[in-house]
């Protein structure tokens, strides 16, 4: 989503819900005018808190991939290419949620989530080989995928459910790509369970 595209959606009208804006940006969403479905000031504040959490966990993922890539721990060109691609996705996701937080009247959270970083720091400090790097990347992707899934039904603006899973699904793809390289099944179960989710507001 580029800035021009986003501005075009925002120019559609002040009553257009932010969720519709977000859904339109990711494809398939309606750009039609609709009643304000944001749940009022309280709903927007609650949604902004969730989105701040989402941008913060995405920022944590960017840090992890940057450390892995800068340490040249991914030995194959394919591995490095995928790492760089996944990092670019996380940057894109973080920027989207930061901008949408602003649209909701909230203060964006561009920094890595401190609670998540505290959990990851030992693994980051011990990064010494490719297996450790891949394990850490897989852990981060799983935390992110679970975090998006755990937000289902918690948004005041229901269209954010779609937007969140548009990102959550992409994170699950990343995790599935990484799993076999550390000896894990890429699709272990028929249903995903958000066991490692970061709670809304945690660390932000």
């Amino acid at each position: 989503m580029d800035g021009v595209t986003r501005r075009r959606f925002l120019q559609i009208g002040g009553t257009l819900s932010m969720g519709a804006v977000l859904a339109a940006c990711i494809g398939g969403g309606s750009t039609k005018r609709s009643r304000d479905s944001s749940g009022g000031p309280q709903g927007r504040q609650s949604d902004a808190t969730i989105l701040r959490t989402l941008s913060s966990v995405e920022a944590a993922a960017v840090v992890v991939y940057t450390r892995i890539l800068e340490a040249r721990l991914l030995s194959t060109p394919d591995g490095s290419e995928l790492g760089a691609l996944f990092r670019s996705h996380h940057r894109e996701h973080a920027e989207l949620f930061e901008r949408t937080t602003t649209d909701l009247g909230g203060r964006p959270f561009p920094d890595p989530n401190p609670v998540v970083m505290q959990q990851l720091e030992p693994a980051l400090d011990a990064l010494g080989d490719e297996t450790a790097a891949l394990r850490l990347a897989f852990d981060v992707e799983t935390i992110l995928a679970d975090t998006y899934q755990a937000t289902m039904g918690t948004y005041a603006d229901k269209s954010f459910n779609v937007a969140a899973m548009s990102v959550g699904g992409a994170e699950s793809r990343h995790a599935a790509a990484l799993a076999p390289s550390i000896g894990l099944a890429p699709v272990p179960d028929a249903f995903e369970a958000p066991e490692r989710a970061v709670g809304a507001g945690n660390g932000v």
Partner: peptide
Amino acid sequence: LGSLEATPALQLAAAILPVESEHAVV
């Protein structure tokens, strides 16, 4: 997901969607 209303229905769809994505990757 864009049309479901109840939280359990949303959660079920959100538990399946990523699995289909993972299938595609495999």
